[in-house]
Nucleic acid binder design. Structure first.
Lengths: 193, 193
DNA sequence: GAAGGCATGTAAATCGTTACATGATTTA
DNA sequence: TAAATCATGTAACGATTTACATGCCTTC
């Protein structure tokens, strides 16, 4: 039976205290979604697979009429997670960033539209950085008080990375702006001299 | 007919001078693979789709016995690419980074293994940054002389981003190291005092 | 009492990679 | 002459998302 990163994501979330599939998905949305998104339709089959493999156990945790399962890592689950964390081969990150593809082809645009595109991309990165800082880091800091330091570390790394990209694009924006102002070949007819 | 980022990637590569499907794939591997990887099995069907949509034209370009097709963007293709570059809605980047998932769960490891993990991740980012600087930026700089500035800009952004991540992890490494040395509660039995 | 969140799953569709299949040409 | 590269495609597989289907519980 083959375990993949999503398997370990589910396993790890159990270790951090999530019990139901729903709770795992909710926790992941508030912590790991920026570097490994996961949908509910992945969580439930994965939990079944992990149970089959003896890495987690399931018990009933229904509240009245509302059905709920509570999962718990087994000792073997813990050991398997540790072995994965220690294993030397780490798959390279897979990125699909439409924004960078556009920027890559931006030579096709006139200077004004190039500037506008860069402006939008900078805004995107800034927004994500702020989102992580306001929505994710506070939660991670709470976990920090329960001897969990790395969720906060990763959140800060993610936020700083996006902020760095925003700064970089801000600099590019200024450079492009300066170049546009320095080349009056095609003056904007809507602007008065 | 729905056009996706891979469609525009193929279209854009044609614009940058690639003619055959094989050449498009090769160019993409040396320029866009870090933010939008693409396999040959995507390129050929995509070219057929683009031809059907009237955005590219195909002509035979065989050398002796070796079959080859040469594709060219049509005027409609150019306009479609421009419209996409200008369109305001940009899908957020999709990232799947196993390294960050491991780091996120690193609290499960003893301090020494945490340090080792961070060291490996820093090395990864450093390697990618160097790879971009030695393999991709020189090529992009060549294109720079043909009025194509953005391939080089994007390559530099990518490299700087990875280098920033490597620095950040290097700092974390030092912090962890300092903490390990400052807490002699669990001395390493293999080390002599 | 209506809306929204809690809770669990399955089915279909989509997207992408790897493997397969073939053969010419160039380079070491 | 063997290996690498050029060149084009298809088929099978795997991973992930969206949509479907259902119903309880809590809050406004």
């Amino acid at each position: 039976m083959k375990l993949t990163p999503p398997s370990f994501l589910v396993l790890g979330m159990l270790r951090l205290g999530a019990r139901s599939g729903y709770a795992i998905k909710k926790t992941a949305d508030l912590s790991t979604r920026n570097f490994w998104p996961m949908s509910l339709a992945q969580v439930y089959p994965e939990l079944a697979r992990l149970e089959q493999a003896g890495l987690v156990t399931r018990r009933d945790d229904s509240h009245g009429e509302r059905a709920r399962s509570a999962y718990k890592m087994t000792e073997r689950g813990e050991q398997t997670l540790l072995a994965w964390l220690r294993s030397p081969k780490i798959a390279p990150a897979q990125v699909r960033d439409e924004a960078l593809v556009r920027l890559f082809f931006a030579d096709a645009l006139p200077p004004g539209d190039q500037l506008e595109l860069v402006r939008r991309l900078r805004a995107c990165d800034g927004t994500v950085a702020n989102q992580i800082r306001t929505e994710i880091i506070p939660l991670a800091d709470q976990a920090n008080q329960h001897d969990l330091r790395f969720p906060a570390i990763v959140a800060r790394l993610s936020a700083d990375l996006h902020a760095y990209a925003a700064d970089w694009l801000g600099q590019l924006e200024q450079d492009l702006q300066a170049q546009i102002e320095a080349s009056p070949q095609v003056p904007d007819p809507t602007r008065q001299p």
